[in-house]
Deep mutational scan, measured.
Amino acid sequence: MGFKLLSKLLVYLTASIMAIASPLAFSVDSSGEYPTVSEIPVGEVRLYQIADGVWSHIATQSFDGAVYPSNGLIVRDGDELLLIDTAWGAKNTAALLAEIEKQIGLPVTRAVSTHFHDDRVGGVDVLRAAGVATYASPSTRRLAEVEGNEIPTHSLEGLSSSGDAVRFGPVELFYPGAAHSTDNLIVYVPSASVLYGGCAIYELSRTSAGNVADADLAEWPTSIERIQQHYPEAQFVIPGHGLPGGLDLLKHTTNVVKAHTNRSVVE
């Protein structure tokens, strides 16, 4: 069995187990497998329904001669939608809004960016022009300005110390501490036991640490421990890039980060 097929099978099995364990909360999309990078042309966006009122959005972007996937989250909030992270750029984010209108038909009224990198804030200006209120932590807003990236308009308070959590509509926002970046936030959907790890969490097929220019490698494993301790009931975990899975993604990420750190020390 090929690795790609095995990865998709694991996603399907995880979703099936969740649907059985929580039949009222989960209505997993039966329309197909989780979209992969090879299936999404740059400039297009796919939506994948995880649970009743919960979707991931998947886009792709060219970077350094390669094409990478990027995940975000959409959560229903009454007759409105909360968006977590842009679709990595203005063109993708405009396509995301169009796809949401086509498939869901509810307005996106608020959006949260989970850290300051372009795959999370690139497209904020498109959201703002569409009347979406954009939010991020003060740290993310400051770092985005320093980096020359787009800056969300509103500040999220109460997320300055490791372990801080605040309720934001249908989700809980959690600051686990520094990891992929010093400002990275985690998003949890309690009604569906869905954990969105953003770039602080890796997919299972990833074996290298990737972009760690703004990471705190020493603190990252401790931050992941905080996530595990705060959300032990999480059933569906979405990484910032690639295929979702279960809580095993947290341990896998820790292993990859520690291996990278150990290699760096040896070198």
Rank of each mutant, 00 (worst) to 15 (best):
E44C: 13
T153C: 14
S70L: 12
A66I: 14
V166A: 07
A90K: 05
P221M: 07
H180F: 00
D119F: 00
L6K: 03
P221T: 14
L247Q: 13
A215S: 12
V37A: 08
A59C: 05
C199W: 00
A144G: 09
I17L: 04
S139N: 13
L81Y: 04
F174L: 14
T153I: 04
L249S: 13
G78Y: 11
G78A: 11
D119L: 01
L81K: 01
K8Y: 14
S181K: 00
I40L: 08
G198C: 01
E33F: 13
I227N: 04
E219N: 02
L5W: 10
R141K: 15
L81R: 01
I100N: 06
Y175A: 09
G78Q: 08
E33T: 10
A87W: 00
Q61L: 05
Y188H: 10
H115F: 00
G210V: 11
S62H: 11
Y34E: 12
S38D: 04
L106T: 03
L13G: 11
H57F: 03
R142D: 15
S139A: 09
G32Q: 02
H115P: 00
T86L: 11
S7Q: 15
D216H: 03
G169N: 08
D118A: 06
V108K: 01
Q229G: 06
S31L: 10
Y188M: 08
T182V: 05
K8A: 09
P176T: 02
G177L: 01
T153S: 03
D214F: 04
T86D: 01
G148F: 09
Y12Q: 08
A94H: 09
P23L: 13
H117W: 00
V212T: 10
S56T: 10
G163M: 03
S22R: 08
V28L: 05
S208A: 08
S193Q: 07
V112M: 08
V67Y: 03
V67S: 05
L24Q: 08
R110E: 04
D79R: 05
L195G: 00
T182E: 06
S137K: 13
V166I: 11
G158A: 12
W55V: 13
D118R: 05
G131F: 15
L47M: 11
A111G: 15
G210K: 11
V42Y: 04
I20C: 12
L97R: 02
A94I: 06
S38H: 06
V166T: 04
S30Y: 14
L81Q: 02
L247T: 05
S27V: 06
D64N: 12
L250K: 01
Q49T: 11
V11A: 09
L143M: 11
V266N: 02
H180P: 00
T207V: 04
S31F: 01
L10T: 13
T207A: 06
S191T: 11
N262C: 07
L5G: 08
V75T: 12
G163H: 03
G210I: 13
V42M: 06
A192M: 09
Y188R: 02
I151A: 06
G158S: 13
A94N: 12
W220S: 04
E225G: 10
A87I: 01
G240C: 01
T114R: 01
L243D: 13
L13R: 12
I186V: 09
S31Y: 02
F3I: 15
L106W: 11
F116V: 06
T60D: 14
H180T: 00
Q229K: 15
G242S: 02
V171I: 05
S162P: 14
